[in-house]
Amino acid sequence: MQSRHQQRHHNWVLWGFIAVAAFFLLTEHTAHVMGILPYLLLAACPLMHLFMQRHHGGHHDANGKSSPSQEQDEGEGS
């Protein structure tokens, strides 16, 4: 089993390797990276809507009942 110090050392080595790899990927393949950016932007829009719309659609508690403020609003409309 590794000590905590060894685990931290391995984490630093891993992050250092990732940083160096990212640097060389960007410097050596800038044209490829820049060419895919518009597609990433277009893909980000529907993904953002998919994940951000999850919390809309009503104020229900864990049991599926409406919150008290929503029940009052529904009662005032009739």
Score class of each variant (00 low, 15 high):
L25Y: 13
M48Q: 02
A62Q: 14
P46A: 11
V13K: 11
L25N: 09
E28A: 10
L50V: 07
S78Y: 08
Q2R: 10
N63L: 10
V13W: 14
R4W: 06
Q72K: 15
V20N: 02
S66G: 00
H55E: 06
Q7V: 01
H32P: 00
V20L: 13
H32N: 09
N11P: 02
F24M: 06
D61S: 01
A62G: 00
G64C: 14
H32L: 08
L26A: 04
S69L: 02
L50M: 12
D61R: 02
R54S: 03
Q7H: 15
G16R: 07
T30C: 00
H29M: 11
Q6G: 02
H32C: 01
S3K: 14
R4M: 06
E71C: 09
C45S: 04
F51P: 13
A44K: 15
C45L: 09
S67A: 03
T30F: 01
I18A: 15
P68R: 01
R4H: 05
D61E: 03
Q53G: 11
H29F: 10
G16T: 08
P46Q: 10
L37Y: 07
M34K: 01
A43N: 10
L25D: 09
H5C: 09
E76W: 13
D61F: 00
Y39F: 10
K65G: 04
L42E: 01
D73A: 06
I36Q: 00
E71S: 04
Q53L: 12
S3R: 03
G57W: 06
G58V: 02
I36R: 05
G77I: 15
R54N: 04
A19Y: 03
G58M: 07
A43M: 10
S69D: 10
F17W: 08
A19F: 10
V20F: 03
G58I: 05
L42K: 03
H59C: 01
Q70I: 09
A31F: 00
H5W: 11
T27R: 12
A31E: 06
Q53F: 08
F17H: 13
Q72G: 05
N63T: 12
P68L: 06
F24N: 06
K65I: 14
G75P: 02
G57I: 04
G64Q: 02
H49S: 07
M52F: 13
A21G: 09
